[in-house]
């Protein structure tokens, strides 16, 4: 029995031990929640929710689209910011510092409100989906910029020296020496960041972007079935974030090599 629930360092975990331990955890969690829900005086009304299944699905798809778009745009922003932070032109470097520190130091909620009601309004962008993607991208871009920068800085000076010695230009050094290594390092945290973007996109509901969370809130408003509206929401997000984080771990193993 002991062998089914314990793991010795340096040994692979046996399949049986894995299955038994996971079952145990699932059982415990299920028991805890069944108990909690059984204590609840609540009239479940899943029928009402079922009628709105289309709305859940549309919201969920919108969340996928917004998150994917934000991932791409945030990568571009993150890359440019990381390069700007290493620029020899000081105003550009400090602009990047200001951007990264402001974004990382303030709540996303506030950023969404200011960007939508103040900035977007002033420059005349009315499409809230566009503003939503831009805001999320700016938010995630600041974190990505720091990941990319630390990736670039992790490349030893000796390699940059070798690159110069063999006659690579600065841009060739980035292209053939720095970026291939940074990308490998970056893939695991990047997938983690993608999971964050998916969850963070739920905040766009406050500017009425019709994504997963807002749609669930609306269903709740129509049906007064709060738990039935929000439980599918949790499951829907897990369906997205769980594969992403499992993939992140798999990639981490794949790209792991000694330097």
């Amino acid at each position: 029995m002991k062998r089914l629930v314990t793991h010795t360092d340096g040994q692979p975990v046996a399949v049986a031990a894995r299955v038994v331990s996971w079952l145990l955890v699932a059982l415990l969690t299920a028991a805890l929640f069944s108990f909690a829900f059984s204590q609840l005086q609540y009239g479940w009304n899943w029928d009402a929710i079922w009628q709105y299944r289309q709305k859940f699905l549309q919201g969920w798809l919108m969340t996928v689209i917004i998150s994917a778009a934000a991932l791409v745009v945030s990568l571009v922003i993150g890359l440019l910011t990381a390069l700007a932070r290493r620029s020899s032109f000081l105003p550009l470097r400090y602009l990047a510092v200001l951007y990264v520190e402001t974004i990382r130091g303030t709540p996303l909620l506030v950023q969404i409100l200011i960007l939508f009601y103040v900035v977007a309004n002033a420059i005349g962008i009315e499409n809230r989906y566009v503003v939503g993607v831009i805001t999320l991208s700016l938010f995630a871009g600041a974190y990505l910029a720091e990941m990319i920068r630390s990736g670039i800085e992790s490349i030893r000076d000796s390699q940059l020296e070798s690159a110069r010695a063999i006659g690579l230009t600065r841009s060739q050094t980035y292209r053939y020496v720095i970026f291939p290594q940074v990308v490998r390092q970056l893939i695991p945290p990047l997938t983690g960041q993608f999971a964050s973007i998916i969850k963070d996109s739920s905040l766009l509901s406050i500017i009425a972007v019709s994504e997963f969370t807002l749609n669930a809130q609306e269903v709740n408003a129509f049906t007064y079935s709060t738990l039935e509206s929000y439980l599918p929401l949790a499951v829907g997000y897990l369906l997205l974030t769980l594969p992403v984080s499992l993939m992140s771990r798999a990639l981490e193993r794949k790209f792991h090599y000694a330097t």
């Binding site: 000796s158 070798s162 010695a165």
Partner: peptide, 26 residues
């Protein structure tokens, strides 16, 4: 041709690719 103390090679490339890189790109 310059050779340093250590860490001359790029760790993400194989030995052969390390030699090929400057030949092709430079």
């Amino acid at each position: 041709g310059t050779v340093f103390q250590a860490y001359n090679l790029f760790p993400h490339l194989t030995a052969l690719e390390n030699v090929v890189l400057p030949l092709v790109k430079v």
